[in-house]
Every structure is written in C-alpha cells, then in structure tokens.
Computed example of a mutant assay.
Amino acid sequence: MNAVLKPRVAFRPMQKDDLDTIVAIEQVIFPYPWTRGNFMDSLNAGHSCWVMQQDETIVGYAIVMMVLDEAHLLNISVAQAMQGRGLGRLLLEHVMQIGRQYGGLNMFLEVRPSNTSALRLYESMGFNEMAIRRNYYQAKHGREDAVLMGAAL
C-alpha cells in the first residue's frame, strides 16, 4: 500500500503578534509584498485572518473578506521553504470552509497570470476564470493583469 500522509498543521486566527513573522514571509515570496499596515488594516477591519502552523511555526496565512454571501480571498501565502508540500491546498481548503461557515456561497480571488502554480491549485480546487482585470498588479516593467477567479463554496 502506498499512502501519502497529509502534513500535520493547525489553523488559528491571526494575531498582531504574528505580523513580524508574516511580513518576513511576505517579503521573501512576493516582489511587491503586502506591508505590515496592510495586514493590520485587515485585522482591524475584522476580516477573517488565519495562520497555518506546523510545530508552532507559522508556515502560511490567509485573509478572507466577507461581503454578504461572498468570500473574497485577499491573500494566501505559504513560506517559500514550505512550498510544494500540499500546504497551500490545506490552507485554501480551510479558508473555503470558513467562507461556508460565514454563509458564503462563492469565493473570489485575483491571481497573476504569471503565477502558474497558484493557477493550477485554484483550478484543481474548482475555481474558474471569470474575467481579466487589466493592469491590476504592479510589475517590474509597468503593470500585470490579474485573472479574476471564482468558485462555489
């Protein structure tokens, strides 16, 4: 028998004390990272902010904004050293479940077309392309479009 074990992780609400670690992860994995202020604004606004831990170490985080029956995934990230292990899928499953618990019927997100690993993950989780947002993201040479995706919860 050839069984694949899921990584053992725990989820908990994000705290202000987590922001130093989160911002450090963000700065490594993104060319245009969120700032500490962006994360603080999300916490203060009451968005659904989560961290994923493995052995007490933060290995990922996600922020979901609920608007009526829609969940908008604002940020989902896994620490660079932990990528490629299925943690992004576990984190996405978690926040989709949270969206359902808050009464969400659909989840929406934007993703860079150049982020092919994220696109593959989202498609495998039932997200479909809905539109292109032109010049949405800052890029090294001007702006980059965003793919707007959505999935039923």
Rank of each mutant, 00 (worst) to 15 (best):
L87R: 10
M96T: 09
L92T: 07
V59W: 04
D55Y: 07
A79E: 01
D55E: 14
T57C: 14
G88Y: 00
L87E: 03
I58W: 06
Q80H: 13
Q54N: 09
G60D: 04
D41Y: 09
L90D: 07
L90V: 02
L74H: 09
A62D: 06
V67I: 12
M96L: 13
G88Q: 04
L91A: 03
M40Y: 13
T57W: 08
L43Q: 10
V51F: 01
S42C: 15
L92Q: 03
D69S: 10
N75A: 07
M82V: 05
S42Y: 13
W50V: 08
E93G: 13
Q80N: 13
M96V: 05
L91F: 04
R85K: 15
H94Y: 11
L92A: 06
M82R: 15
M66Q: 10
G84Y: 00
C49Q: 04
C49N: 07
I58Q: 06
G46S: 05
A62Q: 08
T57R: 15
V67T: 12
Y61P: 03
E93V: 02
M52Y: 00
Y61M: 12
V78Q: 03
C49R: 09
A45D: 11
M40K: 15
G84V: 01
Q80K: 15
L73T: 04
G88K: 01
E93N: 15
G84M: 01
W50S: 07
Q54V: 00
H94S: 00
E70L: 02
C49L: 03
M65Q: 14
M40L: 15
N44C: 12
V51L: 05
S42R: 12
E70D: 12
M82P: 04
Q80A: 14
V64N: 07
R85M: 11
Q83I: 05
V67C: 13
V95R: 00
W50D: 03
A71Y: 01
L90R: 06
S42G: 13
V51A: 04
I63L: 06
L90H: 04
M82Q: 14
M65I: 08
M65R: 15
Q80R: 13
R89H: 11
G88A: 06
N44F: 10
L74Y: 06
Q54I: 00
V51T: 06
S77L: 00
M82T: 09
S48A: 12
M65C: 11
V59R: 02
W50Q: 07
M65Y: 05
L68P: 09
L43H: 09
M65V: 11
M52I: 02
C49G: 04
L73E: 00
H47S: 06
H72R: 14
D55M: 08
